[in-house]
Design a binder for these strands. Structure first.
Lengths: 253, 253
DNA sequence: CGATAAATTGAAACAGCTCAACTGTAGTGG
DNA sequence: CCACTACAGTTGAGCTGTTTCAATTTATCG
């Protein structure tokens, strides 16, 4: 409700400027995946404005009534829940091609979503998407698959938080980011961490100090390089083994 | 008083004989929620057999291809994920009126579901449900709400596992069970734990010993009574405060 | 350039785990 | 019905991975 309305009127003017899903580099990953050209056009017609957000700007907050889903066009987001005592838990980091807001279909938003850097999303009015479901069954089926995958993703995080040690959690985190960047055509073994150490720690159920120590230790073991927020995975095989738990977890020392 | 006896006494005795959603005591909570009588009938027609499972019997396993959703008619289930190293993480406990299998819509099952006691489910062939979605928009809308709520539920577990202490986790667990039984018309403050201490510990990211100690300590504080698996909440207000985190968490001592 | 925030590192504390012994409970067969 | 076994749960003692607290160092930004 209380969103700054000043900036959003101007149309995007730079290289990111695209008008349709068909032209978007993410359409193989995003909602239009697997649709015929004609169907993509129909989807295109219902998509609202492309909304720009700057770093730390909020896309939606807890309690806001649900109206739109959002597809990340570029940039990164974090979503987090806040409990009664005011403590937050980051529930996910979202990047280009990923969908935000599925937890809100029940009526109101149950978490906050914040841009980690200057980002852009496609606003997808859910009521119109529902109309389209009736006409484009492929779209509905794919939407269900996406929601189902989100449930599975969260179950994997529960597995991580419920019974992995710090070292394994962090390895899972790195390997997961690596795979997602690879899917998007970026280098698998060299990427920028878009989130702070604090955000990583919060997401993994660890303190910022633990993340810092983990990073130092992994570096000392020769498994990776770190320069500020740029990470280079030097031994991805080892990291994958750690993540899978097939390799033993050594103490924090 | 043996456990099987007290279990049979709780649900209405004729429940096993029901043939339709309209007659099912769970239809206010389950998939048919909010449907017109005529629409419930249509849903009824696509529902497959009612499948009985005995204790420890598996409803589905990881890797099985997806065909049906399942609605719990009576009894209880647990779902769990297994990682590469063979360790399990219980991702939820399901009771009457709740839906199982939504994580599998993406194609194959990503977790195992096992009956905690003799139970019965309604088999819902998803392909036929999809057909019905096109004809009964209310059903589709409600299905989306259910999936969305599942996502939110899991985010709440992430919050629990990510930044709550043992005492608070356990309080959340008890208060949550209490609320769900209350919704189903059972006593809010007196119920059977259908799962072992080990299952509780696994779900909450704690050891069985911790659960045992927590139970003893809560008992000593006068917050609850325990007799084997029967729990009586003596101070639900205090427990809710602990769960919400508005009350301080005392050490395990 | 200085101020402020983010990240690193060390030392000490502690929550929950591991290991181990024990108790109760349910199930089985004589 | 009891003896025996197996398993679930409880309790204690010591250990340890991670947090907490504190002090620096390093980046970021006006």
């Amino acid at each position: 409700m209380s969103q700054p309305l000043s900036r959003q009127a101007e149309p995007p003017l730079n290289i990111h400027a695209l008008k349709s899903c068909a032209q978007c580099s993410m359409h193989q990953l995003c909602l239009p995946m697997g649709l015929e050209d004609a169907e993509i056009d129909r989807l295109d017609k219902i998509i609202g404005r492309r909304r720009r957000l700057e770093r730390d700007e909020r896309l939606y907050s807890v309690g806001e009534s649900f109206r739109n889903l959002y597809a990340v066009r570029f940039g990164h987001f974090k979503t987090y829940q806040v409990n009664a005592a005011g403590e937050a838990q980051i529930t996910g980091f979202q990047m280009a091609g990923e969908l935000l807001g599925m937890d809100a279909i029940s009526g109101t938003h149950h978490c906050d979503a914040v841009a980690l850097e200057d980002s852009e999303v496609c606003e997808i009015p859910f009521a119109r998407l529902e109309d389209l479901f009736g006409e484009v069954p492929t779209l509905l089926r794919h939407f269900h698959r996406i929601m189902s995958q989100e449930i599975t993703r969260e179950q994997n995080v529960m597995l991580l938080l419920g019974n992995m040690r710090a070292e394994q959690r962090f390895a899972v985190f790195l390997v997961n980011l690596s795979a997602r960047y690879a899917t998007r055509g970026y280098a698998a073994n060299r990427f920028q961490l878009r989130m702070s150490r604090e955000d990583i720690g919060n997401y993994l159920g660890l303190t910022i100090e633990s993340i810092s120590r983990l990073l130092s230790r992994f570096k000392k073991q020769g498994w990776l390089e770190v320069d500020k927020r740029e990470v280079t995975l030097l031994d991805p095989v080892k990291l994958k083994a750690l993540a899978a738990g097939t390799d033993v977890c050594s103490p924090m020392a």
